[in-house]
Design a protein around this nucleic acid. Structure first.
Length: 949
RNA sequence: GCGGGAGUAGCCGAGCAUGGCCAAAGGCGCUAGACUCAAGAUCUAGUCCUAUAGGGGUCCGAGGGUUCAAAUCCCUCCUCCCGCACCA
């Protein structure tokens, strides 16, 4: 059969929509607005099919709402803030072969590449790619008149205003911050996606307590992750072979490894080198331990790593397996004791923490249990340390030896002891990374101190509470995120919002050398799209966008005449912009991938709450999971990484849209599968064929019509219900599978009503439109409408639902099924099928049973009175009826009143065709029927007996 | 650690909120048939076990419980996955 050419029709309709400005959106006070966005993408290079998942969901919902009669605003933009465009330009400048090949493969020309050695041009280029090759290509109903991006002058004005407002509301603050930074190129993010890194994405920033041990005029320093164990300290460990550094920090002299000094230079204002001291020089000497004011001996050890902590470790043999084993080793090493002349009499483990699992001497116990022999058995020691720590942290309590902290839970004591030691000047804080991290640029990543970092005060009590309230009112999908968002907001701490260095973005208004960071300038932007249109039309200039202007538009402050005078924006324009904002806001829905759950969505919401009144705050969030490659990220080797325009041509845009919508719930990661995409392509072809076929049928009304009308209406109702709840997958399932399969059944049953099929066909194509708009337009081209995209959805009509029609079909299906079963099992020829409808008295008896099945056979008395039937037959029937009564489905079928014989006669032709047999229908108690095996007596109401020969 | 999620037939993957028409949608794979010289594509039927009459049995990670009734609710356990901040 003639099918359609997706490349041709998709292009055709894309062009027609554009020519006719179908997606143009204007304020219209007579229609209810619906405003939705997807989280705009950064400019990070070419996108792949994974990214299109979220955008497609957005378009499906936009189109659905549009067809429900809403005035839908669906804008889009990009987020080039950051250094991604800069580093791409740099790579191209350096003639990086890999990058150039990548650009070419995705369709960039030589000139494009030449041009893109300038970061601004990178942004320009990708803005076009995103718009033309991705969003338009996919047939999205975006109105690009509202397009904006975050490094445009106008957008920067908007961000500047936003930060002024945050400052006014006392939501900005400055304080020291320890963050990860590359020694070459400034702040970088350490995360497994390794956007900024070439190595070490799984590293964690660890906070050590740097303990200071008095050692003459100096301090020996030891870094620990477990400050709560200070009461159990018995000695220090140094490596006799290491040349330790002496450095001056904050007027004191500290001793630590060279590696530690290097790290500290990024965390302390001044670090002056004062000389060195070899480990063995310190061995045997005494230090004064912080917090417990106890003299301790310095002992030699071999397990120390100068790149971990300070290369000096305080020993807590009661709770640290390493220390316990090292101490045991040294006590048995007489040679060593003699060499350094060590006095070890007082060096004994001290009980400090009691946990359920490990008692009061956990190190001893676990070393015993794991059978650890020496300090060289690193693997076992790591395991032991981990186990004890976990148990201690959760169930542990501090013992009496811990003085003021006795009885406290370990979790609490840990913080308290750390804070107390620091405030007494006996300890400091030292940050380090858990593994080596290397920047994209090749530089080493360290933890550095920024003394005057700017923060947005998301910890603010009032803001937090108001945001939580709002979150609870919103429509958030999936439910699990709706449940979590309030606690995510409560947990949200102050967040740094500006940075220095090589960065594209808006200058921080209160300190121009800082640039606003990428998350901080992408929280409130749905409010800006509305203005961007006026800027794009040339009615608004960036330098007119003053604080008063934004105050007026977003917060209704000030007098129009006044603002018009100071900004030069005509009064009517100001009014128009203000009204636009008023009309479109609040935002109905923000859609984004699951990566946004812990950062973007919370700050998006909190900034709205900070800046706008309650009735203007967002109403919905939709989170989608990812499209992934086999076993993880989408990549070249695993498929799904081909350029989007190529994929669109290969599979068809409608196919891909249906794939996203239907192949999995939006709330799970979905593996990309080419085969599956091709199946959806076939699906669309066969749906196309079916709709073409039903257009051509020319038959008349039949009884089966009522069934199709009824089922269609019920499914239509369900369709709307699920789509209103943004259950995209269910909606697609109804439109593309449930309804077509009802139509298939209808045709199979001999339905051919031309008028009905035309009507249902037209409605069905509308239901398909949000998902596969191109094919829907093509199918409806001859219907004398402009664009099906602009049509309204069919609505559910309750009067069309007929329980009777449905029950009759169910009955036929059941009979058909039973015959099939018998044919499967029995060895019969199957030329003649006899169907015996149950005697009337059986139905009467069944109804009596239904009245009160609890009575069981006790019902017999009553039934014998009322029902006229042979008493033996009656008794055995009631018995079986009592069993059947628990089958809910059967019961409800029996309750519907229709003539079985009549419906069977009607379906005779269908059954004969299905089984290629003669069908004979009779009542079970008719005289002279053909029933050699006496099957007729087995008939039940709505469950006729069958005999086949 | 903290917080969250998931375990469904050979495989992928719905269902679970509102327990009962659930032996459990859809797809893949497989089997048979139609079409074809043949292959592919397509279409039809079947695909837990069992049964020569529409039946019976077992089943939704494991084990308990609630209920007339559990894949669905509750408890315990096992296994796997994700987020945890300057990454959009």
């Amino acid at each position: 059969m003639e099918t359609y050419d997706h490349v041709e029709i998709e292009e055709k309709w894309r062009e027609r929509w554009e020519e006719n400005k179908v997606h143009k959106t204007e304020r219209d006070e007579d229609r209810e607005p619906f405003y939705l966005i997807f989280a705009y993408p950064g400019i990070s290079g070419f996108l792949h099919l994974g990214h299109m998942r979220c955008y497609t969901y957005t378009d499906i919902l936009a189109r659905y709402k549009q067809m429900k009669g809403y005035n839908v605003l669906f804008p889009a933009g990009t987020h080039p803030t950051g250094n991604q465009a800069i580093s791409l330009a740099k790579k191209l400048e350096e003639n990086d072969e890999g990058k150039i090949a990548y650009m070419k493969k995705n369709g960039a020309t030589e000139e494009d590449i030449e041009r893109m050695k300038d970061p601004e041009e990178v942004v320009k280029y990708f803005n076009e790619v995103y718009k033309e090759d991705y969003w338009k290509k996919f047939g999205f109903s975006i109105d690009f008149d509202y397009f904006t991006h975050t490094i445009r002058e106008d957008y920067k004005k908007f961000i500047t205003w936003q930060f002024k407002k945050l400052k006014e509301k006392d939501l900005l603050t400055q304080k020291p911050y320890f963050g990860t930074e590359c020694v070459e190129c400034g702040p970088v993010a350490v995360d497994p996606s390794e956007t900024d890194l070439s190595e070490g994405g799984n590293a964690e920033k660890q906070e050590f307590t740097l303990l200071k041990f008095e050692y003459g005029d100096r301090y020996v320093t030891a870094a620990t992750l477990r400050p709560e164990t200070v009461f159990g300290q018995t000695n220090l460990w140094v490596d006799p072979e290491i040349e330790y550094q002496i450095v001056e920090i904050e007027g004191e002299e500290w001793i630590m490894s060279e590696e530690a000094v290097e790290k500290l230079t990024y965390q302390k204002d001044s670090v002056k080198e004062k000389g060195t001291i070899k480990g063995e020089k310190m061995v045997g000497e005494k230090v004064l331990a912080p917090g417990i004011d106890r003299e301790m001996i310095i002992l030699p050890a071999s397990f120390l790593d100068p790149d971990f902590g300070t290369g000096i470790v305080t020993s807590v043999p009661s709770d640290a397996p390493y220390d316990y084993v090292a101490l045991k080793d040294i006590k048995e090493d007489e040679e060593l004791i003699e060499k350094y002349d060590l006095d070890l009499t007082d060096v004994e483990p001290i009980e400090i923490i009691e946990s359920e699992e490990w008692g009061t001497m956990p190190a001893e116990k676990i070393v015993d249990e794991l059978d650890i022999e020496s300090q060289e058995e690193e693997e076992k020691l790591e395991e032991a340390t981990e186990k004890i720590y976990r148990a201690g942290f959760h169930t542990g309590r501090m013992l009496d030896s811990c003085k003021d902290y006795a009885g406290m839970r370990v979790q609490e004591a840990k913080e308290r002891i750390k804070d107390d030691l620091i405030s007494e000047g006996k300890a400091d804080v030292f940050y380090d990374l858990s593994e080596e991290v290397i920047c994209r640029c090749g530089g080493k990543v360290v933890v550095g101190k920024i003394p005057d970092q700017w923060f947005i005060r998301y910890s603010d009590q009032e803001l937090t509470e108001a945001s939580v309230d709002q979150a609870k009112k919103m429509m958030i999908k999936p439910q699990s995120y709706a449940d979590n968002l309030p606690s995510t907001i409560e947990w949200f701490q102050d967040r740094s919002c500006a940075r220095k260095g090589n960065w594209m973005g808006t200058n921080f208004p209160f300190n121009e050398e800082w640039i606003i960071e990428a998350i901080a300038d992408s929280t409130f932007y749905p409010a800006y799209y509305i203005l961007a249109k006026h800027y794009n039309q040339g009615d608004l200039k960036a330098d007119q966008m003053s604080e008063e202007f934004f105050d007026h538009v977003y917060q209704g402050k000030g007098e129009v005449q006044e603002i018009s005078k100071t900004t030069g924006i005509p009064e009517h324009k100001l009014k128009e912009i203000r009204e636009d904002f008023d009309y479109w806001y609040p935002l109905d829905l923000n859609l984004g991938g699951k990566e946004h759950m812990t950062v973007h969505f919370p700050v998006f919401l909190m900034n709205h709450v900070a800046l706008l009144e309650e009735e203007e705050r967002p109403k919905g969030i939709f989170v989608n999971w990812w499209l992934v490659g086999k076993g993880g990220k989408i990549s070249k080797s695993k498929g799904g990484a081909e350029p989007i325009p190529d994929a669109a041509e290969k599979y068809g845009v409608d196919t891909l849209r249906l794939f996203y919508a239907h192949s999995a719930s939006p709330f799970v990661d979905k593996e990309w599968s080419e085969e599956e995409a091709l199946i959806y392509q076939k699906k669309l072809n066969s749906l196309w064929d079916m709709i073409q076929k039903i257009k051509e049928l020319k038959g008349e009304e039949k009884a089966i019509d009522d069934y199709l009308i009824s089922r269609f209406n019920e499914l239509l109702k369900e369709y709307h219900e699920v789509m209103e709840e943004y259950e995209i997958r269910k909606g697609a399932n109804i439109a593309f599978y449930d309804i077509p399969s009802e139509i298939e059944w209808y045709l199979k049953r001999g339905g051919e009503n031309r008028e009905l099929l035309q009507k249902i066909g037209k409605k069905l194509v509308r239901l398909l439109t949000p998902f596969t708009p191109h094919i829907a337009e093509e199918l409806s081209e001859e219907w004398n409408i402009d664009f099906i995209t602009q049509e309204l959805m069919p609505e559910y009509d309750e009067d069309k639902v007929s329980k009777l029609a449905e029950a009759r079909e169910e009955y036929v299906k059941k009979v058909q099924e039973d015959i099939k079963h018998i044919l499967d099992i029995a060895e019969v020829e199957g030329h003649d099928i006899y169907i015996y409808v149950a005697e009337a008295w059986k139905e009467q008896a069944f109804e009596k049973v239904l009245e009160d099945p609890e009575k069981g056979m006790g019902l017999m008395g009553e039934i014998v009175e009322e029902v006229d039937a042979p008493s033996d037959d009656l008794a055995s029937f009631v018995k079986s009826a009592l069993e059947d009564v628990s089958e809910i489905g059967y019961q409800s079928l029996v309750e519907v009143d229709f003539g079985e014989k009549e419906i069977l006669e009607e379906s005779k032709e269908f059954l004969e065709k299905t089984f290629e047999a003669d069908i004979h229908i009779a009542e079970a108690d008719e005289e002279g029927i053909h029933d050699p095996e006496n099957k007729a007596s087995h008939s039940k109401p709505k469950r006729p007996a069958i005999y086949i020969e």
